[in-house]
Write a protein that binds this DNA or RNA. Structure first.
Lengths: 112, 112
DNA sequence: ATCAGTTCCTTGCATTGCAAGTAACCAAGG
DNA sequence: CCTTGGTTACTTGCAATGCAAGGAACTGAT
């Protein structure tokens, strides 16, 4: 399934934002949920750079909690800026879906 | 709409393949149709490199026809390899849509 | 002390979208 | 002519993101 990584661009970020909408999660939990939802190859090599990006952009409330098994875990949850980014993503996703539907049903749209 | 170009990655190629499924089209016609379907910012700077990539991969039957207004037009239509690439794209697109639906409806899927 | 497991982060590459610029070809006007 | 402008095609270079691979810090157990 790693054949067309391009299709995932932007999408993975939107989905992680959604997962952090209401719950505080840390890395392993995010990976787990993404995989269960169908992103079966989702990996930490993708997640960590993404989390750092989004944190730098102020999208998160972050909480560090000590772990019995290693370094402290970083728990993430959306800030107001994060929620806004999520909304933007979802709107763009819907537009995109509609455009693709237009192409594949040979209808032209002219709404845009 | 140029805000998140990442979301378009892979998608534009899939859509162009679809447009060339049955008809011979040349650049300006492809741009026109993409725009009408909702990809309103679709541009030649995106299209030409894409066409060359796909042509190199054997995805097209190409026909050059003289133009009264300039250099000969290149008309493109899918080859068998192109059709296969289109099918692959569509399958991946559907998987992706399902996964996103799972994330956004908070359902877990486990089918993948 | 060493080892394995956990958690986090860094580095570097591949791909693609896209802006901007280049080049070839034609017709018509000065 | 030869210049201008429109048409068609291509090139170059940059930005963003996914992801593999490797590394570093912390813990408890051997």
């Amino acid at each position: 399934m790693g054949t067309d990584a391009q299709l995932n661009k932007g999408v993975l970020e939107g989905c992680v934002l959604k997962l952090l909408e209401d719950d505080f999660l840390f890395s392993a939990e995010i990976v787990e949920r993404m995989r269960r939802c169908g992103f079966s190859d989702f990996s930490e090599g993708t997640l960590y750079p993404m989390l750092l990006r989004l944190e730098k952009d102020g999208c998160f409330i972050v909480a560090r909690k000590p772990s019995p098994n290693g370094p402290p875990k970083k728990y993430y949850k959306l800030s107001e800026a994060g929620r806004q980014k999520l909304d933007t993503f979802f709107a763009q996703w819907q537009e995109l879906s509609q455009s693709i539907a237009n192409v594949f049903s040979r209808k032209e749209d002219d709404h845009a």
